[in-house]
Design a binder for these strands. Structure first.
Lengths: 204, 204, 204, 204
DNA sequence: CATGAATGAGTCTTCATTCAT
DNA sequence: TATGAATGAAGACTCATTCAT
């Protein structure tokens, strides 16, 4: 039982340190210490500091995407899927604060070079929402005048801004669940087509 | 007038360089070159590199807040104010891409220390939305079950994510105006109270 | 009188440190200390450690070539020029031990990449001998069956090996002058054409 | 016989890697890979990286000395021995390029500490020439005014510079044999005593 | 006020060497 | 003996900041 996989140990340590300090203020040596390995060991598993962040994204964001895909498929109805997305997203944030913090910050700030690698899984994540919206439009539940590419960003942005607040503030005035419900509710009623509004079973 | 205020010149240069490289990859010497001053001159006007970003925020974000306050006050109705906010916000992004990019990225990534200074004007900006929502709730236009503190973040987040896309992507598939309208429309219909929905003059 | 040119100061310090430790065992920080500048200052004048060595070669070896060109032109006769070359070469070695040591060692060992830059002035130096030999052959003083490209290396190699011994050994059994005379004498008599041997004024 | 002595396997691999990269740019792990052993195995056979080079010298240069001793003893006459030395030396270089490259470079560049060990066999090699010269002087074939300690270096240096060129250049304009003959010829005629010159059977 | 050459603390990264298996 | 994952000391280089002019 040699110890848990070292690659994982380092990723986990990096999440912690990146969350605390941000990528640029994180020291490789601190990640090493956090992971209980020597500095040099990091470089047996990662090409360089950038590569730690990139790998972290590919692997962890990948898991997140897969997980979310399963979550929303538990719902039949596109509008319910949006609600489920909101709840799952914020629940992930609540459970994995540090990881969420890293995702939230680094998706935005990393250098142009890294963005290329980092955005791939992120776009996939966004496109989960896009698919749901298209599905809803085809089913007549969602207004057809709304551009899915705009809406996916609106929905994600609303949730993400909320989670950023939640993650950073120590106060946590609003419970995450409550936020998820309010936000998804507004989007559902805002995007719902005229006819769906008549037939849709209350409450959203 | 050639000898424009040097403080301003440096801020302007910093906006450009921060937008291009991000704060951590920006070199003070590059800002100096862009501003046509010597490296040392920067330190006559700013305490250090952090201080450039902080000042930039305080001053430029301050202007933005003031401007937005005027903009939304051109509308009487809270729902229209929200639409105006969306349009003005994205129009600012379109006109001042670099500044918007700096705002968008650095609000999130800057070190905990700086965040304190940077968040102040940002919170003010968010609270413009909050006030509008409260105003709308008091006027019976907006559902009272929605928490203004959540909704301000939802609205801002939706717009911000959109603008981030717009700023970074070179494709610009969706016109900013179109995005502003769709997003505000969804929020308006989503947040509108039952009774307002009956009386509210079409279109939103 | 701000202090002597810093570029020169660093080169001079590098010669000393490279001579003592060799390029690979030389520490940039030691060169800096020897030159009485900060570590970072080195990088204002040189791209990197390699560049110090390359510049050193280009500049100092360049001077050496020019100097030697003048020296041998003081003689009319190709055979005398060879003697003059030998004497001047070893006299340079004696006067500039450290520089000679760096030249001698690094011409050979530097990485293939640097060799490109380092060999240029070295080849020029070798070709001074080549020209003299060709000149001697044309004047009928030197055997025509000898390939100048081979002989230039033989003459240089003989002197260089001698100087290496002289520079490294602390004993210095043989005076440099004596060595220069013996070596050039052997080459002169060995390369001299049959007819020159009859007419050539004694001693060589 | 597959399981060749591992010590030998490592030396052989080191020759290849040192020749390609030079001692300082050679990686122990690369030698290990080339030798098909684990990194750690190297340290079962050698104290450290330095020790690989030192052993390599002692063993391989030792062989070279022995071999050369036999070669020159095939000739009776000191002048012929010099020719034989030249031809054998360059023929060795041609046949064992990599080893020659390592010898040529590392004799010069290795750190002062290693030089001690490395020079021993090298001095022995040089002294083969010295003995021949003394023998020639005693036999009246070689001028008595020449210092054997100088001449041994001149002869070796001339050949070595030639071989360095031959090993490094890809062009190989001059055949090695031709070079050996020209160089030894010049030395023979240059060192030959007056009286030998009258009686010595042509051609040299 | 302005300059920009100089500083040197701070970090990533490499790689010879070790040691548990 | 043999392995090769792990170590951590060491060094090149960067860049925010200072200060003599």
């Amino acid at each position: 039982m040699k110890e848990e996989n070292k690659h994982q140990k380092i990723i986990k340590a990096a999440v912690k340190v990146f969350a605390e300090k941000g990528f640029y203020n994180a020291r490789v040596s601190e990640i090493a210490k956090e992971a209980n390995v020597a500095d040099g060991t990091i470089y047996l598993y990662f090409k360089n500091k950038d590569d730690i962040l990139i790998s972290l994204f590919e692997e962890e964001f990948g898991k997140l995407v897969e997980n979310m895909r399963k979550e929303i498929n538990k719902e039949k109805d596109a509008l319910q899927k949006i609600k489920r997305f909101a709840v799952s997203h914020l629940s992930f944030v609540a459970k994995q604060q540090q990881l969420a913090e890293v995702f939230g910050v680094e998706v935005r700030q990393s250098s142009k070079f890294m963005k290329e690698y980092i955005n791939k899984p992120f776009i996939e994540y966004l496109n989960l929402i896009r698919s749901v919206i298209i599905e809803g439009q085809e089913a007549g539940l969602i207004r057809k005048d709304l551009t899915p590419g705009i809406m996916k960003r609106a929905v994600f942005g609303a949730l993400d801004e909320m989670s950023r607040y939640w993650v950073l503030s120590s106060k946590k005035k609003h419970s995450v669940d409550e936020a998820a419900l309010q936000i998804s509710d507004v989007f559902i009623w805002g995007m719902m087509s005229e006819e769906a509004r008549k037939n849709y079973p209350w409450p959203a």
